[in-house]
Design a protein around this nucleic acid. Sequence first.
DNA 1: CTGAAAGCGCTAACAG
DNA 2: CTGTTAGCGCTTTCAG
Lengths: 340, 340
Amino acid sequence: MHTYSRMGATSCDIARRAGVSQATVSRVLTGNPAVRQELRDKVNKAVRELNYRPNGMARAMRTSRSGNIGVVVSRLAVNPLYPALLHVLGSCLSEAKFRLVVWNTDEMGDKAAADAVGDGMVDGIVMTTATAVSAELYQTLRLNAPIVLINRIVEGWPCDQVASDNLAGGRMVGQYLLSSDRRRIGLVTGLVLASTIRERECGFRETLTASNQPLDERLVERVDHFSYNTGFMAAARLLDLANPPDTLFCINDLLALGARDAARDRGFEVPGKLWIVGYDDIEMASWHTFDLTTIRQPLSQMVDAGVRFLLERINGYEGEHRNVRLPNDLVIRGSTFRGK
Amino acid sequence: MHTYSRMGATSCDIARRAGVSQATVSRVLTGNPAVRQELRDKVNKAVRELNYRPNGMARAMRTSRSGNIGVVVSRLAVNPLYPALLHVLGSCLSEAKFRLVVWNTDEMGDKAAADAVGDGMVDGIVMTTATAVSAELYQTLRLNAPIVLINRIVEGWPCDQVASDNLAGGRMVGQYLLSSDRRRIGLVTGLVLASTIRERECGFRETLTASNQPLDERLVERVDHFSYNTGFMAAARLLDLANPPDTLFCINDLLALGARDAARDRGFEVPGKLWIVGYDDIEMASWHTFDLTTIRQPLSQMVDAGVRFLLERINGYEGEHRNVRLPNDLVIRGSTFRGK
DNA sequence: CTGAAAGCGCTAACAG
DNA sequence: CTGTTAGCGCTTTCAG
């Protein structure tokens, strides 16, 4: 019967067959240039003939490099931003010959990630949903592998951090709305644990205040988690006010999509009677029904930078911790656009 | 300067500190019962004091078990079904103490997955998007690790396969529509490479034909890939016919959501003038604007069964290849429901 | 029940 | 340039 135990050829078999030492086989396979072409050919021939593949675990053990990068996400199945991030991370890491190990912390918590790092089974960690609350996990991880924060950052943590400029993003939305003469502006936001949310909200408020039109706190709804439903409900509450807002800034797209549907449900024409702005530019934002004005984060560049930093650390770089903010784009669509 | 090279304590250090042999340390840590409680305590004490974590790679090498399970998906950032699957897979595998290695084959192709398996860096493979076209990959993988197919199956491949009963699902939709007296039924489907699509379409057609109301081929649109946009376009073409359908069965939800918006765009009231049925019950299907009647696959049970099979194979089981089909549910929502 | 000893398959000095 | 040698840290016989 077929069995899967790795009973394949070893470098010794190759050595024997090629008539060289096992060390030479190793040299050829690791790309060491100090091997005569003749031997090199012999080895490669034997490798081909025996269909030899070096044992990854032996190599990993010897080099203390697993070739695994752990990625910590959450709400994978809820917020499409995370699959999008994962997608980009996957191609980026795969290009660098690393495997992508994923932990979704929604239910299984942080334990598994901490274990893997303690084991030495990952060479580095990407955290995409860190908050100050994750401090304990962070400490555990940091002991054993380099970490980079992508997307959400946590001030004061000594590690490389890459995010988009959410503060500027929030400001951009504020300016856009003010310059469009929106007067009764509502905000649907969430708990400010996540840096992304905190900064967007902050930049937004700041801009309104600076224009002497500070946010009316009666038009602010704060949800306890981000979903289509909470967005729907929060927006519904605002739209049901005696004097409802004429504009809704939702701190992320998921909320905005819910809000858009609450507006539809309540008969608030968009953008005629109500403008809606989101944040993230997830796939659905561009769907016909939603056609949502939003802020697009440069996911691909964020990931590129973050992965680059991480690999540098893995390779021993010990310089200053880098903190990068990449610029966002305002994507204007039909949820605010007023056709001429 | 802080460095990450795994210079932690080894089992030898523990042995020395506990005054036992290294072998005993190993026994305690692997849970071998044949160790006196006294020694066991000593070892555990030393482990705690030195904050010792066994080196995962050494263990992996020794046991030829990496603790990694590879999952091959595609369209991760496009079809929300896949993040949903990944989410369930993640908690299932994490419970079984396995790490989840993800490959998205959209762009990087299958190569990375094949490599990892060849390396022995994963103990098993879950393929969620296999088609007969993946045959080469399959052969490569199968040589070195057990494989299970979840979601899409491929007839004739000698491996465990778990899917929902898409044939019955297609039939269920057909029966539902016939029994609701829908007369001009259109179908938006795709290439039939994927077993899921093929079977749904087949069951659906079969049911209509059996009722002497075979599908009018002029009302069939076949898209070349599944997305909101292709669904929108395909539905638009059907709705623009002189004599458009009164019902649209879209072979997956992503298409159905696009179709729903095409209907909205064309002024086809749903469900008044047009019924729409999808398949998968992705998150968005339940959103207010879409409120889509669809078929729900038992993802969680599919994954449970698939993972169980895979772990059994990893543990040496060599019995017959299992082929499981789990029943689906028809979820009736507002895109077909006629209020009384 | 416990310790000594033998490697898993590989990389990396160290000599030649 | 190449072969010899020595382990990486662990699990697992094999004796006692």
